[in-house]
Nucleic acid binder design. Structure first.
Lengths: 342, 342
DNA sequence: AGATTTCATGGAACCGGTTCCATGCCTGCC
DNA sequence: GGCAGGCATGGAACCGGTTCCATGAAATCT
């Protein structure tokens, strides 16, 4: 409703002066500034960033592209991004881009090209060369979460190391018959998360002198996905592993539910470890390698805004820590226990 | 980068003509339009809605306020809102406003007042009189999901009826000792969902001639919340109900987990029914009263855009249907079964 | 054929801010 | 005392679109 011209008129100054007083740039006397601020408050004036963006090029808004909203990791990242941006006065505009979204091209060619954003944060979206090119043409800072993009600052965890640590935890307990249930490399856009976790698993197994062939089963990254896979993998008693490394906590929950349903005791007969640090892990007593999505979100915002302030396009990438949280879904395999007890 | 003036120059026409050709408003000859469109494509021109919004007042952007992102219902609503808005060319800017958010006032007084949105969708946010007033002052259409706001179109389900139906399902199976586990009215902003579901429960119980005092237990609206409450409520065998009506599927999952842990068989010894239609319900074989958050999101967008087109501020409210999905978490109580078998 | 419409286009104003530039005052310094 | 420089302010241009208005040509009507 009210424009800066109204504020200026009410305060008895020129538009230019009102603008300087409110934005804090340029010379304004203390009294004038007070007058202008009082006038602005009186008529409930809030500046339109759209109008300002025309001349400054700054929109006070950031675009976020993300493949899922409901899955835990993404929900957490989103909440932390929103909060961090809000604190800095930025709006967050959200584009949900699931793997095979028909809207994908339109988002890159139309929505993101509308000069609406000061920067873009891409959360675990596997970008094609062409899409990266599109984004770079916007000449805006770009930060990735969860995986590398060419020429872009990235906030991530070391998925290979995390998977390796998780697997080594099982190995150190004495397990030799270990299976990895993780994301498929073909079905979903995986942003290298799936394959990195598989590589970490294989590295740990190989280092322990164990074979890896036939030890991987794919699953949707969800609890029902893990459950379905669990029923299949654990259904045959003769070929049952003593431990499973799940690529995510949500998969692990499903595996535990399947095991319970099949009457397999966890951890006595089956150890399960996940990756994430999901809040439900406590309830399932799940041993997990916790990552910290909120930290990743906050750091991504800091990196983006730093790039914005400095004008440099590429900020510093960061690899965030993970931590092993041992609960009671993992233990030594029964066989060994028996031996130990003798 | 490129502005409409560049397009006009390249096409050899005036800015005004280029604008008309691209927007499709006003008279332009077919050949001229083709020329302009070709020129625009050639230099990769995408109009800046920010610039356009200055004169048209339309921003092609909608603000959404929502208390949670991770909880299932909200995630689903969000995904459907984003998709529906995207299809219509609108951006979705997200404000996450958990119950006791310290950012709350700033969002209403600053962020939402920036003239950035053509309309606002409020998802299950309990608004104070003052906040409603603030929103109305923006003179923009406003649509609520999940509960009534004064003078605003609302998309919702009938929570009282849904709770009543769920309870009646248990009653019709022969249960008499039924407990309701739902949200607290004090702890969280509840948008009347909690109290409405409690009212529906009490209405059904009273109609069946059963007492309601002592039959309600509060819980966080999450699986761990239901789990904790389940351990407490089901822990004492002497005071154990034969059936529980959970206010959400996520609570119900927790209750089922707690029951399993206590060695209580579902549904033989305990029936559980929820509300939601959560995708995990299949895995838990949970009987539930399904609502359809995606329908609610789509309808909210349709209502908002209709209000936008017509210029009328208040659209039509709608009450969406729910459907009872019977799985095997509910059955007749054991006692009756025994009788029936005789 | 002359008078209206309808169509097509260009020029210019405008939306709401920011910023450049010019102006004038006051202070400090040589 | 005159001049340079810092401070405070106003006028005007500008950002990138849309739209009003004027103009002229072609089509339609009387």
């Amino acid at each position: 409703m009210s424009a800066i011209a109204d504020v200026a008129r009410l305060a008895g100054v020129a538009k230019a002066t009102a603008s300087r007083a409110l934005s804090g740039r340029g010379y304004v006397s203390i009294e004038t500034r007070a007058k202008v601020i009082a006038a602005a408050r009186q008529i409930g004036y809030v500046a339109s960033p759209n109008a300002a963006s025309l001349v400054t090029g700054r929109t006070q808004s950031v675009g976020v592209i993300i493949p899922y909203i409901s899955r835990w990791f993404f929900g957490e990242v989103l909440e932390s991004l929103e909060l961090a941006l809000l604190e800095q006065g930025y709006d967050m505009t959200l584009y949900n881009l699931p793997p095979a979204s028909p809207e994908r091209d339109r988002v890159f060619e139309f929505f993101l090209a509308r000069k609406r954003f000061d920067g873009i944060i891409s959360v675990c979206v596997e970008l094609s060369e062409q899409e990266v090119e599109h984004l770079h043409q916007l000449r805006r800072p770009l930060v990735g979460i969860g995986g590398p993009i060419r020429g872009v600052a990235t906030i991530e965890i070391d998925d290979v190391a995390a998977a390796r640590l998780a697997t080594e935890h099982l190995l150190s307990l004495g397990h030799r018959d270990i299976v990895h249930v993780g994301g498929s490399q073909v079905d979903e856009m995986d942003f290298q998360v799936h394959s990195n976790r598989l590589r970490g698993f294989e590295a740990a197994m190989t280092a322990a002198g164990l074979p890896v062939s036939g030890c991987f089963y794919s699953s949707e990254f969800t609890t029902p996905g893990g459950y379905a896979r669990g029923l299949a993998v654990l259904g045959d008693p003769r070929r049952r592993p003593t431990a499973i490394f799940a690529a995510s906590d949500e998969i692990a929950f499903g595996l535990i539910l399947a095991a319970r349903e099949l009457g397999i005791r966890v951890p006595t007969e089956l150890s399960v470890i996940g990756i994430d640090g999901h809040p439900h892990a406590e309830m399932f007593r799940l041993t997990t390698l916790a990552q910290h999505p909120r930290m990743q979100g906050e750091l991504a915002v800091r990196t983006l805004l730093a790039g914005l302030a400095s004008g440099s396009s590429v900020g510093a990438s960061a690899v965030l820590p993970t931590s092993l949280i041992i609960r009671s879904s993992t233990s030594a395999p029964r066989m060994l226990r028996g031996l130990g007890a003798q």
